[in-house]
């Protein structure tokens, strides 16, 4: 691919990013940061190439360290995002229907 094609992809992706991110609900801005963090670890592709290549032992070791660092982010980022997203719950209908009954203490999670 020549530079102009790559630049085109990049510029268009910036516009896609702009519109997609504005459509993210503010309530999910923290998960948004966690997940963007996880996906920016796609830098692991470069790390893998460096780690896999022969020729320069120092480049290989730097690549391996980069693979390990990016892996912390990939697993950590997606896992913590999943953990946060699982906590967002809609209004519980049974809680509402108890409104006219006696006050029942909610179960502690």
């Amino acid at each position: 691919m020549d530079f102009i094609s790559i630049l085109s992809i990049f510029i268009l992706a910036c516009f896609v990013g702009y519109y997609v991110v504005w459509s993210v609900t503010p309530a999910l801005h923290t998960p948004l940061m966690a997940v963007t963090n996880a996906i920016s670890s796609v830098i692991v592709v470069g790390a893998l190439i460096a780690a896999a290549a022969e020729g320069s032992p120092s480049a290989k070791w730097l690549g391996l360290v980069a693979v390990a660092l990016a892996s912390v982010n990939i697993f950590g980022g997606f896992a913590v995002t999943a953990r946060m997203l699982a906590m967002y719950k809609k209004k519980d209908k049974p809680v509402l229907s108890r409104a006219d009954g006696p006050a029942v203490p909610e179960k502690q999670a």
């Binding site: 963090n37 790390a47 022969e54 290989k60 730097l62 980069a66 660092l69 950590g76």
Partner: peptide, 27 residues
């Protein structure tokens, strides 16, 4: 946590760039 994760992405990017500098043929 997010700040710490950002630092890791940054460091990984530096390492990849240095690796590319040291072994450009592979890239």
């Amino acid at each position: 946590l997010v700040a710490a994760f950002h630092s890791l992405v940054g460091l990984a990017a530096v390492l990849v760039a240095v690796a590319a500098f040291l072994n450009p043929g592979a890239f």
